[in-house]
């Protein structure tokens, strides 16, 4: 039975390890969740250590048992009397073996139910009696360990160790992220910005832009770009300029005083490029319920070439 228990524990451990190894790569970019994997690996390490020790103890015990059994069988065969057989069982003082003694000392030591009258307190409260069992050793040991841990924690973070304050932790996290981003962005197309952005015309990219538009922009600018809280995208009038670079800039930094929020924390540069391209493709589509024109008439450079951009899904 016992071995089955261990087997199950091992299996569970493997499953968690498996899950862990699967989630690890996905979680890697999430640097702020870094604590989690490191804790998981610690827990895993400790758990496997404990499991190893338990397994060793178990193997030793099985060995002992088998050894005794073999000796007994040998003795039976040869008709020899073992010293233990010579002594009547009842007379033998029931000395606890090493493991039992350890268990009683450090783990649990309840007085058996048959003998509990010996440790029952004299007085009852409304018929409730109290036993005077020892404090469960594992419990009181756990209490001591947590106290030692608490002192260690305070030492490490406040009284002398080099634990980071939360401010220092934050600074470290930001530094790490900067490096990782620099690596990730090295030589990538996503480094488009308002100085070099161009209209994309691949229909797949424009379709991506449309998806972003429906999710994030349509609430204020209308499902068809007809305008609402925000201005109309289908006419020729633009408050902040109607070129791709102007539009990219408006999306990226927003115009907070007029209510356009900044999207650079939410959208990647490529996404902003796609959505800006999609928006420019709406020009002249003449949807119903258009908002009145706002801003000056746009005659600038990057007037979209509507012939080049097919509006998908229309």
């Amino acid at each position: 039975m016992k071995s089955i228990k261990y087997l199950i524990a091992l299996l569970l451990l493997l499953i968690t390890a498996e899950g862990y190894s699967q989630t690890a790569p996905a979680a890697a970019p999430a640097t702020s969740a870094q604590d989690l994997p490191s804790i998981m690996s610690w827990l895993l390490g400790i758990a496997s250590g404990v499991l190893f020790i338990v397994a060793m103890i178990y193997i030793i015990k099985v060995n002992q048992f088998l050894y005794k059994r073999v000796i007994a069988l040998e003795a039976q065969k040869s008709g020899m009397l073992l010293p233990s057989d010579a002594v009547p069982v009842v007379a033998q003082p029931v000395g606890d073996d090493f493991w039992t003694r350890m268990r009683k000392k450090y783990w649990e030591d309840p007085v058996p139910i048959e003998k509990e009258a010996d440790i029952m307190l004299q007085h009852a409260h409304d018929g409730i009696y109290e036993l005077d069992n020892r404090l469960p050793p594992w419990w009181i040991n756990m209490f001591f360990i947590t106290i030692v841990w608490a002192v260690g924690y305070m030492y490490y973070y406040h009284w002398g160790g080099n634990g980071l304050s939360q401010k220092e932790e934050y600074q470290e996290e930001v530094e790490m992220a900067k490096k990782q981003i620099a690596i990730a962005l090295a030589g990538k197309a996503n480094s488009v910005d308002e100085s070099n952005v161009t209209i994309v015309s691949e229909s797949s990219l424009v379709a991506e832009g449309e998806l972003i538009y429906k999710n994030s922009c349509a609430a204020c600018h209308g499902q068809l770009g007809e305008g609402g809280v925000g201005p109309n995208f289908t006419d020729d009038y633009w408050i902040h300029g109607g070129g791709i670079k102007d539009l990219f800039k408006t999306i990226k930094y927003g115009v907070p005083e007029k209510g356009m929020i900044s999207w650079q924390a939410q959208l990647k540069p490529g996404d902003m490029q796609n959505v800006a391209s999609y928006i420019l493709s709406l020009r002249g589509t003449n949807p119903p319920n258009q908002k009145e024109a706002q801003g000056p008439l746009w005659t600038g450079d990057a007037a979209p070439d509507t012939s080049a951009v097919k509006t998908p899904g229309k």
Binding site: A30, Q264, A265
Partner: peptide, 17 residues
Amino acid sequence: ALMWKEFTPEGTLAWGN
């Protein structure tokens, strides 16, 4: 919590909204 904390490799929030 994991969605709040997830970043794209480019350093933007994966779930900015």
